[in-house]
Write a protein that binds this DNA or RNA. Structure first.
Lengths: 232, 232
DNA sequence: ATTATAATTTAAAATTTCTTAAAAAAATGT
DNA sequence: ACATTTTTTTAAGAAATTTTAAATTATAAT
């Protein structure tokens, strides 16, 4: 009956944390307990988890900040937030980061368990996050998306901002093919609306500026659909 | 920005249902509203939805029963339950059926919206993705309906507008066969009347212009019926 | 042959979407 | 706190797309 699912639990109240850990352990989950965001992030990086349960209100580094860091490293891992009161703002921020759910303290442990099961039972998603590629060559450029550096053959190189970097990476991964606007928006901006759309346009303009060092490369617009990075 | 996501909303309170429907419509979702479980299941079977929001307490057929029926037909579609009070039992039953989330009435509409986005933005699960065909060859042309590019053998190529693209795709899928006017109108223009019909004529003229590069291809009119793309 | 309905073509008007610069706001680093 | 960088917002103009209108031609029916 062992589920061998590993959960990272980050909770600053030691009593509550211990009780919750025990409860989940009894229910066949393997729990790593961290008492603040800093320790939480260290533990997260040390092993592979299937799910994170994060208290939002914590000293040193709160749950939302921790979540953002985790999301930068792993964009798929499910996140559940615990909020002390029904702080709507925290809840909305959590969803914006990419939360899968939240629970208001005090909550019913059976319901938490049901949520965990529901989330972990979801079918695995399509791109099984294969070894993350971060070095690309295209046209006269080489591009390291981990270091966020775009280098032109002539030695010229640009440091990319996080958004520039993500967008270029998605374009490169779909080289010569369409990158649908709403897919990029939902992935990078986590929301697709008029404003994020304009923001994306601005970044497309920035990338075009970088890429014009190689005139054979073009980011063309497919009206109403998205963009396409292509050569020649 | 249209999301073109379709949501089935099943809610027996007509006032609340209407308000919720309007709110979600404003936020660019296409809502089908049913007032009870029976109607809900009928609507569910009539078209393709991306998400269902089900009130649990309903006359005739409650939300949990409806959910079970939906799950038998479709095991992947996300379900969100609405419960009048915090009825723990209902919540747990919901999760057992395979709910993705639940909300306790009264709830905050912004939070519902955040949940919907969070759920719909999840990567589609493995078995959902049916491969859509988007590359076609006919006559001296190859046609990529994803990039909306029609290429002639001689290297000449045209960027198609969305409507040109959809119409050509329907013609090609019915190559040498009749494409009934009203079928194309209802699919592409979502309405068949005098004006959309004139509009379609304009697009037929545009396609003819493109296709005249290969004189063996013809879009012929079948008076009163529709059009036929044929070769010879 | 006459009449009514349907289809074709062209051009202009209306709408939607994209691009970009610049300002404002937010986040980050020293 | 201050300066710097990054991101978002605004707004105006450009480009692409769609609709509408009108004049013309074709088809079918009586």
């Amino acid at each position: 009956m062992k589920s061998n699912k590993k959960i990272l639990l980050v909770e600053d109240d030691p009593n509550f944390g211990k009780i919750l850990k025990d409860y989940l352990t009894i229910n066949n989950y393997e729990i790593s307990l961290a008492v603040n965001g800093i320790e939480g992030f260290e533990k997260f990086n040390k092993s592979e988890f299937d799910l994170c349960i994060l208290d939002i209100m914590m000293p040193f580094k709160d749950g939302l900040t921790l979540a953002k860091e985790i999301r930068e490293v792993n964009e798929a891992i499910p996140l559940i937030f615990l909020t002390a009161k029904n702080l709507k703002d925290d809840v909305l921020k959590g969803y914006k980061i990419g939360a899968d759910d939240y629970l208001t303290k005090p909550f019913d442990s059976e319901i938490l368990l049901a949520k965990i099961k529901s989330i972990l039972n979801r079918k695995p998603s399509v791109n099984t996050e294969q070894k993350d590629i971060f070095e690309f060559d295209f046209g006269e450029f080489s591009f390291n998306s981990k270091l966020r550096i775009l280098t032109h053959k002539e030695g010229n190189s640009f440091k990319l901002s996080p958004k520039e970097n993500q967008l270029l990476k998605m374009l490169v991964l779909n080289f010569d093919d369409l990158l649908p606007r709403d897919i990029a928006l939902n992935k990078i901006w986590r929301d697709a609306n008029y404003f994020t759309s304009r923001s994306m346009d601005v970044y497309i303009a920035k990338l075009r500026k970088y890429l014009e060092k190689d005139p054979s490369l073009k980011i063309i617009n497919v009206h109403g659909e998205g963009f396409r990075l292509m050569q020649e």
